[in-house]
């Protein structure tokens, strides 16, 4: 992605250079009264090459198409993935006393220091 963005900017530079070349050539051909002549070949080739390069970069930046049939993506999910509901996780229930790093609340704060049922322990918070 970053590489192709660099390619895109480079090809825009190539196109800008070609445009400047044509403007310069147009200026001198007008001065020497050769107005009917067509643009030099090297500038045409440079312009088309810059265009091709820019389009390759654009196609890569736009990215790959994704599958639109819903069943294809769903078939790759396991049952555990589908029934997983992170919003319904509970950590603060009585089984947390079975955890090896369980710290019992201090007796002085008993009753007052009880945390809420849906509170998430600090070690699960990143």
């Amino acid at each position: 992605m970053a590489f192709f963005k660099a390619v895109l900017f480079m090809s825009l530079g190539v196109l800008f250079h070609a445009a400047y070349s044509v403007a310069e050539w147009r200026y001198y051909s007008r001065k020497t009264d050769q107005d009917t002549e067509s643009i030099p070949w090297d500038i045409i080739i440079q312009t088309l090459a810059g265009f091709l390069l820019a389009m390759i970069a654009v196609l890569n930046i736009a990215g790959e198409f994704k599958e639109i049939r819903a069943t294809v993506e769903l078939s790759q999910k396991s049952w555990e993935d589908v029934r997983n509901r992170p919003s319904f996780y509970l950590f603060n229930h009585r089984a947390m006393a079975l955890s090896p790093d369980y710290v019992p609340p201090s007796p002085s704060a008993s009753g007052m220091g009880r945390s809420h049922l849906t509170k998430i322990p600090d070690k699960y918070l990143s």
Binding site: L15, A19, I43, T47, L48, G50, V58, A62, I68
Partner: peptide, 25 residues
């Protein structure tokens, strides 16, 4: 996503192609 990607590349083609057509006169 696909529609957006297609639209993006078509628009980029018009802009770049217009520039090239202008340069080539």
């Amino acid at each position: 996503l696909n529609t957006k990607s297609l639209n993006f590349s078509r628009t980029a083609l018009s802009v770049l192609g217009g520039g090239v057509a202008g340069i080539l006169g």
